[in-house]
Amino acid sequence: MRILHTMLRVGDLNRSIDFYTKVLGMALLRRQDYPEGRFTLAFVGYGAESEQAVIELTYNWDTSAYVLGAGFGHIALEVDDVYQACTQIRQLGGKIIREAGPMNAGTTIIAFVEDPDGYAIELIGCKG
Rank of each mutant, 00 (worst) to 15 (best):
D115T: 07
E99C: 03
Q52Y: 08
I109W: 08
N14G: 14
M1H: 01
R2C: 00
V79Q: 00
V44S: 01
V79G: 00
L24T: 10
T40S: 07
V44K: 06
A53F: 03
T6K: 11
Y83T: 13
R98H: 05
R38I: 04
I75D: 03
R15M: 13
A76T: 08
L13W: 06
R9L: 15
I89D: 00
D80A: 15
L123T: 02
A120M: 14
I121M: 11
G118T: 05
P102N: 06
G93F: 07
M7V: 13
L41V: 09
A105Q: 13
R90Y: 07
T63C: 11
I121W: 02
D117F: 09
C126D: 11
L123R: 02
D80R: 04
G128A: 15
T107G: 09
Y66R: 09
I109F: 08
F72W: 11
G47F: 07
Y66T: 05
E56W: 02
D115N: 06
L8G: 09
V54H: 14
L24C: 12
W61C: 02
D18W: 13
Y119P: 03
G45E: 05
L77T: 01
L68W: 10
T108D: 15
D62C: 02
K127E: 12
M1V: 01
I97Y: 14
H5N: 06
G94L: 04
K127P: 13
L29E: 02
A53W: 02
R98C: 03
I124T: 08
H74R: 05
N14M: 14
V67F: 08
L57W: 04
D33V: 14
G11V: 04
E56C: 03
P102Q: 04
A27S: 11
Q91D: 13
T107H: 09
V113H: 02
L77I: 00
L4R: 10
S16N: 12
A100D: 08
R98F: 05
L123Q: 04
G37M: 06
L68V: 10
M7K: 10
R90A: 15
A70T: 07
Y119I: 09
Y34W: 14
A76H: 04
Q32F: 10
T40F: 05
L29M: 03
I55E: 04
P102T: 01
